[in-house]
Amino acid sequence: MKNLTTLIFATFLILLGCQQKKATPKVKEEKVIEKTLAQKIETAHQKESFLKHEAISFDAAISFGGSEVFNANITITTSSDLAKITYQNGDEIYVNQQDIFVSPSLKDNPGVRFHAYTWTYFFLFPYKLNDNGTKWDYNFKTSETSSTYTTAKLSFEANTGDAPDDWYISYTDVKTNVLNHVAYIVTAGKTKEAAEADPHAIKYDSYQTVDGVPFSSEWGFYEWNLTDGLTNKIGAGKITNIKFVDNFRDTFSIPKDYIKK
Protein backbone atom coordinates (compact mmCIF):
# COMPACT_ATOMS: atom_id res chain seq x y z
CA MET A 1 0.00 0.00 0.00
CA LYS A 2 2.83 2.32 0.84
CA ASN A 3 4.46 1.66 -2.55
CA LEU A 4 1.17 2.37 -4.31
CA THR A 5 0.79 5.69 -2.51
CA THR A 6 4.34 6.63 -3.46
CA LEU A 7 3.68 5.76 -7.10
CA ILE A 8 0.46 7.80 -7.20
CA PHE A 9 2.20 10.80 -5.62
CA ALA A 10 5.12 10.57 -8.09
CA THR A 11 2.69 10.37 -11.02
CA PHE A 12 0.89 13.47 -9.70
CA LEU A 13 4.16 15.43 -9.56
CA ILE A 14 5.03 14.43 -13.13
CA LEU A 15 1.62 15.52 -14.42
CA LEU A 16 1.86 18.79 -12.49
CA GLY A 17 5.28 19.47 -14.00
CA CYS A 18 3.96 18.85 -17.50
CA GLN A 19 1.08 21.27 -16.92
CA GLN A 20 3.47 23.94 -15.66
CA LYS A 21 5.64 23.52 -18.77
CA LYS A 22 2.58 23.92 -20.99
CA ALA A 23 1.51 27.03 -19.04
CA THR A 24 4.81 28.80 -19.69
CA PRO A 25 5.51 28.58 -23.43
CA LYS A 26 8.79 29.93 -24.74
CA VAL A 27 8.73 33.53 -25.89
CA LYS A 28 10.36 33.95 -29.27
CA GLU A 29 13.01 36.65 -29.13
CA GLU A 30 12.55 39.38 -31.75
CA LYS A 31 15.67 40.43 -33.61
CA VAL A 32 16.47 44.11 -33.10
CA ILE A 33 17.17 45.81 -36.42
CA GLU A 34 19.87 48.45 -36.17
CA LYS A 35 18.98 51.83 -37.69
CA THR A 36 21.02 53.03 -40.62
CA LEU A 37 23.05 56.22 -40.20
CA ALA A 38 20.59 58.06 -42.44
CA GLN A 39 17.75 57.00 -40.13
CA LYS A 40 19.74 58.07 -37.07
CA ILE A 41 20.30 61.52 -38.62
CA GLU A 42 16.59 61.82 -39.37
CA THR A 43 15.78 60.90 -35.77
CA ALA A 44 18.28 63.44 -34.41
CA HIS A 45 16.69 66.12 -36.57
CA GLN A 46 13.16 65.15 -35.50
CA LYS A 47 11.89 64.14 -38.96
CA GLU A 48 8.68 62.66 -37.58
CA SER A 49 7.76 65.96 -35.92
CA PHE A 50 8.89 67.92 -38.98
CA LEU A 51 6.59 65.99 -41.31
CA LYS A 52 3.57 66.62 -39.08
CA HIS A 53 3.59 70.17 -40.45
CA GLU A 54 2.41 71.07 -43.94
CA ALA A 55 5.04 73.65 -44.83
CA ILE A 56 7.87 75.77 -43.47
CA SER A 57 8.93 79.33 -44.20
CA PHE A 58 12.29 81.06 -43.71
CA ASP A 59 14.42 83.95 -44.98
CA ALA A 60 17.77 83.06 -46.53
CA ALA A 61 20.60 85.48 -47.28
CA ILE A 62 23.53 83.83 -49.08
CA SER A 63 26.84 85.47 -49.98
CA PHE A 64 30.03 84.28 -51.67
CA GLY A 65 33.28 86.22 -51.80
CA GLY A 66 31.66 89.09 -49.95
CA SER A 67 28.91 89.51 -52.58
CA GLU A 68 25.27 88.62 -51.96
CA VAL A 69 24.01 86.02 -54.43
CA PHE A 70 20.59 85.29 -52.95
CA ASN A 71 18.22 87.05 -50.55
CA ALA A 72 14.65 85.86 -50.40
CA ASN A 73 11.85 84.37 -48.39
CA ILE A 74 11.24 80.69 -49.06
CA THR A 75 8.08 78.78 -48.24
CA ILE A 76 8.18 75.07 -49.03
CA THR A 77 6.10 72.04 -48.16
CA THR A 78 7.78 69.62 -45.77
CA SER A 79 7.48 67.00 -48.52
CA SER A 80 9.36 69.49 -50.77
CA ASP A 81 7.03 69.20 -53.79
CA LEU A 82 5.78 72.80 -53.75
CA ALA A 83 7.68 76.00 -53.02
CA LYS A 84 7.35 79.75 -53.42
CA ILE A 85 10.44 81.97 -53.40
CA THR A 86 9.99 85.73 -53.07
CA TYR A 87 13.05 87.93 -53.51
CA GLN A 88 13.42 91.19 -51.63
CA ASN A 89 12.81 93.14 -54.85
CA GLY A 90 9.55 91.28 -55.50
CA ASP A 91 10.78 88.76 -58.10
CA GLU A 92 9.19 85.35 -57.63
CA ILE A 93 9.86 81.69 -58.36
CA TYR A 94 7.23 78.98 -58.00
CA VAL A 95 8.29 75.34 -57.81
CA ASN A 96 5.90 72.50 -58.62
CA GLN A 97 7.95 69.32 -58.29
CA GLN A 98 10.34 69.35 -61.28
CA ASP A 99 8.76 72.41 -62.92
CA ILE A 100 9.56 76.00 -62.05
CA PHE A 101 7.75 79.17 -63.07
CA VAL A 102 9.24 82.65 -62.75
CA SER A 103 7.93 86.19 -62.82
CA PRO A 104 8.55 87.94 -66.18
CA SER A 105 11.43 89.88 -64.59
CA LEU A 106 13.40 86.61 -64.26
CA LYS A 107 12.74 85.16 -67.70
CA ASP A 108 16.32 85.75 -68.89
CA ASN A 109 18.02 84.83 -65.61
CA PRO A 110 20.10 81.65 -66.21
CA GLY A 111 20.45 80.81 -62.52
CA VAL A 112 16.83 80.45 -61.50
CA ARG A 113 16.75 76.62 -61.42
CA PHE A 114 19.95 76.55 -59.37
CA HIS A 115 18.56 79.01 -56.82
CA ALA A 116 15.15 77.34 -56.81
CA TYR A 117 16.51 73.96 -55.74
CA THR A 118 19.91 74.46 -54.07
CA TRP A 119 19.10 76.50 -50.95
CA THR A 120 15.93 74.57 -50.19
CA TYR A 121 17.85 71.29 -50.53
CA PHE A 122 20.53 72.43 -48.09
CA PHE A 123 17.85 73.52 -45.63
CA LEU A 124 15.87 70.28 -45.97
CA PHE A 125 18.90 67.98 -46.25
CA PRO A 126 18.33 66.06 -42.96
CA TYR A 127 14.83 65.16 -44.20
CA LYS A 128 15.81 64.10 -47.74
CA LEU A 129 18.21 61.28 -46.88
CA ASN A 130 15.89 58.41 -47.80
CA ASP A 131 14.15 59.92 -50.81
CA ASN A 132 13.55 57.74 -53.86
CA GLY A 133 16.77 57.26 -55.80
CA THR A 134 19.17 57.82 -52.89
CA LYS A 135 22.14 55.46 -52.46
CA TRP A 136 24.27 55.39 -49.30
CA ASP A 137 27.81 54.13 -48.75
CA TYR A 138 28.14 53.79 -44.98
CA ASN A 139 31.66 52.44 -45.25
CA PHE A 140 32.98 55.56 -46.95
CA LYS A 141 36.00 57.15 -45.25
CA THR A 142 38.02 60.26 -45.99
CA SER A 143 41.79 60.58 -45.49
CA GLU A 144 41.50 63.21 -42.77
CA THR A 145 43.59 62.52 -39.67
CA SER A 146 41.80 64.94 -37.33
CA SER A 147 38.15 64.22 -38.16
CA THR A 148 36.05 63.16 -35.17
CA TYR A 149 32.81 62.73 -37.10
CA THR A 150 30.95 59.79 -38.57
CA THR A 151 31.08 59.96 -42.36
CA ALA A 152 28.96 58.45 -45.13
CA LYS A 153 28.51 59.16 -48.82
CA LEU A 154 25.20 59.86 -50.52
CA SER A 155 24.82 59.47 -54.29
CA PHE A 156 21.85 59.01 -56.59
CA GLU A 157 20.44 56.61 -59.12
CA ALA A 158 20.32 57.75 -62.74
CA ASN A 159 17.55 60.21 -63.65
CA THR A 160 17.01 61.27 -60.05
CA GLY A 161 16.20 64.96 -59.75
CA ASP A 162 17.92 67.76 -61.64
CA ALA A 163 21.49 66.60 -60.96
CA PRO A 164 21.83 62.83 -60.42
CA ASP A 165 25.64 63.02 -60.70
CA ASP A 166 25.93 65.19 -57.59
CA TRP A 167 27.12 63.51 -54.39
CA TYR A 168 27.25 64.47 -50.73
CA ILE A 169 29.45 63.34 -47.84
CA SER A 170 27.80 63.80 -44.47
CA TYR A 171 29.73 64.49 -41.27
CA THR A 172 27.69 63.85 -38.14
CA ASP A 173 28.38 64.15 -34.44
CA VAL A 174 29.38 60.71 -33.17
CA LYS A 175 27.19 60.99 -30.05
CA THR A 176 24.15 62.96 -31.23
CA ASN A 177 24.03 62.16 -34.99
CA VAL A 178 23.31 65.84 -35.68
CA LEU A 179 24.79 67.13 -38.93
CA ASN A 180 27.92 69.23 -38.58
CA HIS A 181 28.86 69.69 -42.22
CA VAL A 182 28.30 68.16 -45.64
CA ALA A 183 30.77 68.05 -48.53
CA TYR A 184 29.28 68.15 -52.02
CA ILE A 185 29.77 68.74 -55.72
CA VAL A 186 27.54 70.77 -58.02
CA THR A 187 27.32 69.43 -61.57
CA ALA A 188 24.85 72.06 -62.84
CA GLY A 189 26.29 73.33 -66.11
CA LYS A 190 29.47 71.23 -65.86
CA THR A 191 30.69 67.65 -66.12
CA LYS A 192 31.04 65.41 -63.08
CA GLU A 193 34.82 65.41 -63.55
CA ALA A 194 34.94 69.21 -63.52
CA ALA A 195 32.70 69.35 -60.46
CA GLU A 196 34.85 66.83 -58.58
CA ALA A 197 37.89 69.01 -59.23
CA ASP A 198 36.24 71.78 -57.20
CA PRO A 199 34.28 70.26 -54.28
CA HIS A 200 32.82 72.42 -51.52
CA ALA A 201 31.18 71.91 -48.15
CA ILE A 202 28.41 73.53 -46.12
CA LYS A 203 28.83 73.76 -42.35
CA TYR A 204 25.72 73.91 -40.18
CA ASP A 205 26.13 76.14 -37.12
CA SER A 206 23.97 77.88 -34.49
CA TYR A 207 21.15 75.38 -34.28
CA GLN A 208 17.87 76.74 -32.95
CA THR A 209 14.72 74.81 -32.11
CA VAL A 210 11.36 75.59 -33.70
CA ASP A 211 8.42 73.59 -32.33
CA GLY A 212 10.87 70.94 -31.14
CA VAL A 213 12.71 70.65 -34.47
CA PRO A 214 16.37 71.79 -34.75
CA PHE A 215 17.46 74.04 -37.62
CA SER A 216 20.83 75.61 -38.38
CA SER A 217 20.60 79.41 -38.59
CA GLU A 218 24.21 80.02 -39.67
CA TRP A 219 25.75 78.36 -42.71
CA GLY A 220 29.39 78.45 -43.71
CA PHE A 221 30.60 77.48 -47.18
CA TYR A 222 34.14 76.11 -47.52
CA GLU A 223 36.56 74.66 -49.97
CA TRP A 224 37.00 70.97 -49.13
CA ASN A 225 39.07 67.94 -50.08
CA LEU A 226 39.34 64.30 -49.01
CA THR A 227 42.65 64.79 -47.20
CA ASP A 228 42.22 68.10 -45.37
CA GLY A 229 38.46 68.34 -45.04
CA LEU A 230 37.28 71.92 -44.60
CA THR A 231 39.83 74.50 -45.74
CA ASN A 232 39.19 78.09 -46.89
CA LYS A 233 35.85 79.72 -46.06
CA ILE A 234 34.31 81.11 -49.24
CA GLY A 235 30.74 81.98 -48.31
CA ALA A 236 28.09 82.32 -45.65
CA GLY A 237 24.38 81.96 -45.17
CA LYS A 238 22.05 83.55 -42.64
CA ILE A 239 18.73 81.78 -42.02
CA THR A 240 16.12 83.77 -40.10
CA ASN A 241 12.38 83.90 -39.35
CA ILE A 242 12.00 80.12 -39.43
CA LYS A 243 8.40 79.09 -38.82
CA PHE A 244 5.98 76.34 -39.76
CA VAL A 245 2.94 77.48 -41.76
CA ASP A 246 -0.50 76.06 -42.49
CA ASN A 247 -2.73 76.09 -45.58
CA PHE A 248 0.15 76.63 -47.99
CA ARG A 249 -1.22 74.11 -50.47
CA ASP A 250 -4.62 75.79 -50.49
CA THR A 251 -3.10 79.18 -51.30
CA PHE A 252 -0.46 77.93 -53.77
CA SER A 253 -1.40 79.39 -57.16
CA ILE A 254 1.02 80.16 -60.01
CA PRO A 255 0.14 83.46 -61.76
CA LYS A 256 -0.93 82.94 -65.38
CA ASP A 257 1.72 85.28 -66.84
CA TYR A 258 4.63 83.48 -65.12
CA ILE A 259 7.09 81.72 -67.43
CA LYS A 260 8.02 78.05 -67.23
CA LYS A 261 11.80 77.50 -67.14
Rank of each mutant, 00 (worst) to 15 (best):
T120Y: 00
Q46D: 13
E34M: 03
V213M: 13
D250N: 09
K261A: 04
A197L: 12
I14M: 14
I33C: 05
Y207R: 14
H53D: 04
S206A: 11
F125A: 00
E223A: 07
T134K: 02
K2T: 14
Y87I: 01
T43P: 12
A116Y: 12
K26R: 07
S170G: 14
A163Y: 04
A195L: 06
H45G: 10
F64A: 06
W224N: 08
I254C: 12
P214R: 08
H181T: 06
K26E: 15
F58Q: 09
K21V: 00
K261I: 11
T172E: 08
P255A: 12
W136H: 15
T240R: 13
G133H: 02
S105C: 05
A38G: 11
D99W: 03
I14S: 11
F114C: 01
H53G: 00
K84S: 06
T251C: 04
D137I: 06
S143K: 13
D257Q: 07
F248E: 06
K31A: 00
V69N: 09
Y258E: 09
E157T: 13
H200K: 12
F156D: 08
H53R: 01
T77M: 02
F125P: 01
A201G: 08
I8T: 13
K40Y: 04
K243P: 03
Y207P: 15
T43Y: 09
D173A: 10
Q98H: 11
F140P: 14
L4K: 10
F12M: 12
N71F: 14
K2H: 08
G133V: 00
G66A: 01
H115T: 04
S80M: 06
Y184T: 05
K135W: 01
A188D: 13
V32F: 06
T209W: 09
Q19R: 11
L154A: 02
I85V: 13
A194F: 08
N139K: 00
E48G: 06
F156G: 03
V69S: 07
D211S: 14
G212T: 09
L179F: 05
F12Y: 13
F156C: 05
V95A: 02
S103K: 03
D205T: 02
Q46H: 10
F244D: 11
V174D: 12
Y258F: 15
Q98G: 06
V186G: 04
E29G: 06
